[in-house]
Design a protein around this nucleic acid. Structure first.
Lengths: 114, 114
DNA sequence: ATCTATACCTCGTATTTAGAGGTATTATGC
DNA sequence: GCATAATACCTCTAAATACGAGGTATAGAT
C-alpha cells in the first residue's frame, strides 16, 4: 500500500553504501551527502538510515571502521572489506534480476514467454 | 524475508499487478502465476501478497472488481480503472527515477555531478 | 552571543513482503 | 470410491527496514 507512492527503496541504501565504500573510505555524514550528490538529487537518505546500516555491515564484517579525529570532531571512516565486496556482488546480481524483470514488463511485452 | 540479502521488492508487486490489469482483466490466483510467467520466473509472489494488494487497490478506487462463477468456483476479476492507470503512471515514473539513479552509480561513475 | 553546519547516535512508527494456515470445489490418479 | 493435487478465495503473524524526530557536542560564521 504506500499512501501516495511506494518506495522501491528496500535494500537500496545498503547497496549504494557498499558501492561507494568500495571506491574509497568515507564517514557516515559524508555518505549522506555523497549519495545525494552521486545520484543527482534523485535519492536522499537520512542519517537515521545510514548509521544503522553502517553498524550492521561492520558487525557482519562487510566493513572495517577506523576513528580519526579531525579538527576536534571525530569521524569514523569505513571501507568495504573483501566480504563487503563479495556481498556487493550478490546485491548487484539481485538488483539486476529484479529490475530487468520489472522494466521488461513495464516496457511492454506482457505476453508470456521470452 | 531476506535473511541474508535484502529484497528490492518494495512496491514491485503493486506495480506489476497494476501493469498487468491495465492490459486485461484477471483474477487473483491467475495473477500469481502471470507474474511468475511474465517475468520468466525472476519474480514470484504468493497469494498472501497479491490478495491484500488487490483489496487495498480496490478500496482506493484503482481497481474495479466483478465476481464471476466459473465451474462452480467463484473468480473475482479485477481491472484497472482510470485512477488505477494514473497511479501506475506515477509508480513507473518513481520506478525510473530510482532505478536510473542506482544503475548509474552501480555501473561506474561514482564521480559527483552529471 | 546566536545560529548554522558538522558529526556522531538511538528510538519509535509505519509500511509491507513472505509464509503459514484456513475453507471449499473440481480434476486427477490409483 | 478415495485420496491427492490443483484451483480459488481469504486472513493473520512475523520480520525487515526506511524514515523522521530527537538527542549530544564541537567548529565556524554573522
Amino acid at each position: 500500500m504506500a499512501r501516495t507512492n511506494p518506495d522501491f527503496m528496500t535494500g537500496v541504501p545498503e547497496l549504494l553504501i557498499l558501492r561507494l565504500l568500495t571506491e574509497r573510505e568515507m564517514y557516515g555524514y559524508e555518505l549522506v551527502q555523497a549519495i545525494e550528490t552521486a545520484t543527482g538529487e534523485a535519492i536522499k537518505v537520512g542519517e537515521g538510515v545510514v548509521y544503522p546500516i553502517l553498524h550492521a555491515l561492520e558487525k557482519q564484517g562487510c566493513l572495517s571502521a577506523r576513528r580519526k579525529p579531525v579538527n576536534g570532531r571525530t569521524r569514523v571512516y569505513y571501507t568495504a572489506t573483501a566480504a563487503g565486496k563479495k556481498r556487493l556482488g550478490v546485491l548487484i546480481t539481485e538488483w539486476q534480476r529484479i529490475t530487468d524483470a520489472v522494466s521488461n514488463l513495464v516496457a511492454g511485452s506482457v505476453h508470456g514467454h521470452a
